[in-house]
């Protein structure tokens, strides 16, 4: 069973990066997984140049959703929104690097879907983010 969850995933789950809240976030977005009731709150500071200055998340979820949020928030800190907009669902799955069954796809994608909603007023997301990954 232990080949399924590689050590890096478990490490992100045990010690999630960017876990917490921001004092005066520019953007707050909640996301939830209706299948399991898991919730995620994403907070972002975006500076005048349109760069993600600071990012944090809180919530409860499984190892896959927490690790994916931890990795995604690492990835977008310091990134211009134009670059953030290029992050697709498949990129998130690739970074997780484990086999995700269809039933668990919503867990893996909760963070990127929440991020997309958080920024939908500010950036034009690339079409590929709308697609269900194959």
């Amino acid at each position: 069973m232990d080949d399924l969850y590689r050590a890096e995933i478990l490490e992100h789950y045990r010690h999630p990066h960017n876990f917490g809240t921001l004092e005066h976030p520019d953007v707050v977005q909640e996301g939830s997984n209706p299948l399991c009731g898991d919730r995620l709150t994403l907070m972002l500071d975006v500076d005048e140049q349109g760069v993600v200055d600071e990012v944090a998340f809180t919530g409860r979820g499984c190892a896959i959703s927490q690790a994916s949020a931890s990795m995604l928030t690492d990835r977008i800190r310091g990134l211009p929104l134009a670059e953030v907009a290029k992050i697709g669902r498949q990129d998130v799955l690739d970074e997780l690097g484990i086999e995700i069954s269809p039933a668990r796809l919503k867990c893996a994608l909760l963070s990127v879907d929440t991020l997309r909603r958080a920024l939908e007023d500010r950036v034009a997301w690339q079409a590929e983010t709308e697609e269900e990954p194959a």
Partner: peptide
């Protein structure tokens, strides 16, 4: 410390 989803996914391997 273990989410039920992870429990179910791992048990499925058994």
């Amino acid at each position: 410390g273990v989410h039920p989803h992870d429990v179910a996914t791992l048990l499925d391997r058994e």
